[in-house]
Design a binder for these strands. Structure first.
Lengths: 224, 224
DNA sequence: ACCTGAACACCGTTCAAGT
DNA sequence: ACCTGAACACCGTTCAAGT
């Protein structure tokens, strides 16, 4: 029955790969395990990704980082829902009617959520080039918004880079700190008075992100 | 001659591992290759890192991210120079005599340089917890500086997180963009007018980092 | 204590073959 | 076109053994 034509597709492969990454970690994503999860021989994946695992990784990054609307404006049904909860609204509030700063906030929130949702794949982002169509759409959204804010030329590029840096860095910071939960309390002795004093200060991750976002955006807009 | 006691040490192993990472990439750092580079059987490394490759990775991250002075203040000879160029000055300008904002700038510059110098190991940073002694020293430096700037309580922790996020994110942004150099020019057609217009705008990476750093620091200090 | 060498259970990928 | 299955050249790690 499962002899031939198992209905494999790049989409199905990527989705299944992400399920493995999210559930077991990136290191346990092997071609053989991926084949098993797809009820297929491992080597079947190579027919859809001839360049092998590296090409699969690139496709995963492109899939994850796609957070901008690809069509005209809004009012469209999501034909390719990204996953489990249909309650969440992707691509919301990035169309031209929305004020520029709110558009950037919505992009930043969507991008953070996308990275957090598959934080096990975060490490794939670093070594891969940001030249996917989705990345270009994000760039266009950034440039249009900062242009509307009054920035021009190099300042626009600069602002976009800083915003992207903050969001990416904040997610990494959040993920690294979350890993601290089950660990030993670290050695905070007299040499670190400030750390000792503020050790029990806990911030809500969402609020922390929002505050940092506000600080970043206001600093960038002030140059206009 | 190379039968026994080959003079292995954790320091030598880490240094050699970084040489392989910097020269050939993280993927080519294997225990056997590392053993070869150390003129030793691969399994000898396990005597110094009993928990295997994961423990080695942690040590590498701790080694790389150590950018703060560990001793009292300054005026000390570097007994463990981090590598090639003795012209560079590690740990400069982070002592208490220096104004708080300049201390933070110097930390940010040193941290960026440390990450850039071994950008092939950047991916190791993400999944590992920031609870090394060096990381705690950086945190103490942050907290002390922002306290001096007038921030208190949660605002101090928040500011430190944002600063760390910016620097980490900026390095990742820089590394990803640098990978764009030899690639195809990407598809920038009529759908991306702003990207098209600003496509040839090139910023000096150092200047770009400095400007983003100023924007971030000024936004954080303004809350005082 | 420090290192060797064989062995085991995996990997990614190539290739010829099936349908 | 799409998938199989055997094979190859690697991996990380365990373990008993050497000195």
């Amino acid at each position: 029955m499962s002899r031939n034509n198992a209905g494999l597709s790049t989409e199905r492969i990527i989705t299944e790969a992400l399920r493995i990454i999210d559930g077991q970690g990136l290191r346990r994503l092997t071609m053989r395990r991926l084949g098993d999860a797809l009820n297929v021989e491992a080597m079947a994946v190579y027919h859809h990704f001839p360049l092998g695992k590296e090409q699969l990784f690139e496709a995963i990054v492109a899939y994850i980082t796609d957070v901008t609307p690809s069509a005209a404006s809004s009012e469209e049904e999501a034909d390719t829902d990204q996953g489990e909860s249909p309650a969440a609204d992707p691509y919301r509030g990035m169309s031209a009617e929305v004020p520029w700063d709110e558009r950037l906030r919505n992009w930043a929130r969507a991008y953070r959520q996308a990275l957090l949702r598959h934080s096990g794949a975060l490490t794939l982002l670093i070594n891969r080039r940001p030249d996917t169509p989705a990345a270009t759409r994000s760039l266009e959204l950034h440039y249009a918004a900062f242009h509307e804010a009054g920035l021009r030329g190099a300042a626009v590029v600069q602002a976009s880079a800083v915003l992207d840096s903050y969001v990416t860095g904040a997610v990494i910071h959040e993920v690294r700190e979350a890993g601290l939960a089950g660990a030993a309390p670290a050695v905070v002795d007299g040499r670190f008075p400030h750390v000792h004093r503020l050790d029990n200060v806990a911030l809500d991750p969402d609020q922390r992100f929002e505050e940092g976002l506000e600080a970043t955006l206001s600093a960038l807009a002030r140059d206009a």
